[in-house]
C-alpha cells in the first residue's frame, strides 16, 4: 500500500454548502453562526461554507445568494474555536480571486471540484491554493459516470497539480457499495495522497457507501447533518458518527453534541423533509447531479411536466454538474413534444 495508510479520518461537514441548494441559497449570517458554533463545539474537523455551486456561484443559473458568501465565510470563521472553515471552488464558476478573498477571511482548506473527466481545469486553482498556504483537495464530481481507469488517471493529474487529497464525489448518489469499493481501492493503489469520499443519499446508500470507503482506506469523509444537502442529502453526519463508534473508529467528535446540533439547530432550518422521495430517488436512479432536483421541480411546474421525465431526459443527454440551464431547455423541448402528441 502507500504512505498514507495511518492517516486519521477527518470529517468535513457540508450542510452549510451542499445544504445551500436545499434552502435555495438563502442562508443568513445568524444561521451560519449558530450551526458553526454547534459543530465547532462538538469537535467537527472542517466546516464547508460557500454557495452551493462553490465560490462565485450566486447567479441566475444556480440561484442568487441572499447573503454574500464572503460574509457567511467571515461569520463562520469568527464562530470557530478549533474547526477549520473549508470552501468549494468549481473552475469555470469561481476564480482564484474569490479563492484569495476567502483565504484572506480565514478559510483554510479548499476543495477544487471538476467533472470526473476534466481534472486539468483545476491546475491553475490548485497551484494558487498551495501558494496561499491553503490545504488543497481535489473533488472529482459525478464519479459514477466514468470508468475506474479514467478516475484513476484524473486523480493522478490532480495529485500532480498539488492536491493533498482527492475525493471520489458521488454527486448523483448513484454509486453502489461494490462500485465505491472498486474506486477507493484503485485510487489507494495509485496515489500517494489521501482519498476522500462524498456521498449523496438518493439510493439510501450514503452511510453504507461511506463505511465501505473507510474500510478501503478513504480518510477524508463528508457528511451533512440531517442530510441537509442537495437531493436526498449526503451521508447523515450524526448517523455516521454513531456507526463509526460502533465500528471502534474514534474520530474525536462528540456524538451527543452532534445529535443535539442536528435536532435543535439544523432541524429548524430544513424547509421540508429530506427523506428520499420520488424526485431524489430518480436522481440516483438516472445518475443526475443532485442539485438539479429543485430546478427540475420548478421547471415541471412551469411547463406542466412530471419532474421525473425532465430528470430522466437530462440523464439520457449526459448533462454534467453546473448545466442548470439545460433543465429549462429540456423542459421546454419536452413540453413542445407533449403538445404535438396531444
Amino acid at each position: 500500500m502507500n504512505s498514507q495508510v495511518n492517516k486519521p479520518i477527518r470529517l468535513t461537514e457540508v450542510c452549510l454548502r451542499d445544504g445551500s441548494h436545499v434552502v435555495a441559497h438563502q442562508f443568513t449570517e445568524q444561521q451560519v453562526r449558530d450551526v458553526v458554533r454547534g459543530l465547532d463545539d462538538a469537535g467537527m474537523h472542517y466546516i464547508e461554507v460557500s454557495h452551493g455551486d462553490g465560490l462565485g456561484g450566486s447567479t441566475f443559473q444556480y440561484g442568487k445568494s441572499l447573503v454574500n458568501e464572503m460574509k457567511l465565510i467571515e461569520a463562520a470563521v469568527a464562530a470557530c474555536a478549533k474547526s477549520k472553515v473549508a470552501v468549494l471552488l468549481i473552475p469555470g464558476i469561481g476564480t482564484v480571486h474569490e479563492l484569495k478573498q476567502a483565504n484572506d477571511l480565514g478559510a483554510r482548506l479548499v476543495r477544487v471540484a471538476t467533472h470526473v473527466t476534466e481534472a486539468d481545469v483545476s491546475a491553475q486553482h490548485m497551484s494558487k491554493a498551495r501558494e496561499l498556504g491553503m490545504e488543497t483537495v481535489g473533488f472529482l464530481m459525478m464519479a459514477h459516470s466514468a470508468p475506474v481507469e479514467k478516475l484513476v488517471e484524473q486523480a493522478k493529474n490532480m495529485e500532480s497539480y498539488g492536491a493533498e487529497a482527492v475525493y471520489i464525489t458521488d454527486s448523483a448518489g448513484a454509486l453502489l457499495p461494490h462500485e465505491v469499493r472498486e474506486r477507493v481501492r484503485a485510487l489507494r493503489q495509485s496515489l500517494q495522497i489521501e482519498v476522500g469520499f462524498h456521498a449523496h443519499n438518493n439510493l439510501s446508500m450514503a452511510v453504507a457507501n461511506t463505511v465501505v470507503a473507510i474500510e478501503e482506506g478513504a480518510t477524508r469523509i463528508d457528511g451533512s447533518v440531517r442530510c441537509l444537502g442537495a437531493g436526498a442529502g449526503n451521508t447523515q453526519t450524526e448517523v455516521l458518527l454513531a456507526v463509526l463508534d460502533r465500528m471502534g473508529i474514534d474520530v474525536s467528535i462528540d456524538l451527543y453534541k452532534m445529535m443535539d446540533v442536528a435536532e435543535n439547530i439544523v432541524g429548524p432550518l430544513l424547509p421540508g423533509s429530506q427523506e428520499i422521495r420520488k424526485g431524489s430517488l430518480v436522481l440516483g436512479y438516472a445518475g443526475v447531479y443532485s442539485s438539479f432536483l429543485l430546478h427540475a421541480e420548478r421547471a415541471g411546474k412551469k411547463f406542466g411536466l412530471d419532474p421525473r421525465d425532465i430528470l430522466i431526459e437530462l440523464g439520457k443527454q449526459k448533462v454534467v454538474g453546473g448545466q442548470e440551464d439545460m433543465i429549462i431547455d429540456v423542459a421546454a423541448e419536452l413540453a413542445k413534444k407533449k403538445e404535438i402528441e396531444v
Binding site: 447567479t59 443559473q61 469555470g92 464558476i93 467533472h115 473527466t117 476534466e118 481545469v121 443527454q317 449526459k318 448533462v319 454534467v320 453546473g322 448545466q323 440551464d325 439545460m326 431547455d329
Partner: peptide, 15 residues
C-alpha cells in the same frame, strides 16, 4: 460568465 465542459460522446454542439 460561466463555462462548462461536457464530455458526452457523441460530443455536444456549443450551447
Amino acid at each position: 460568465a460561466l463555462i462548462i465542459l461536457n464530455p458526452a460522446d457523441p460530443p455536444i454542439l456549443m450551447r
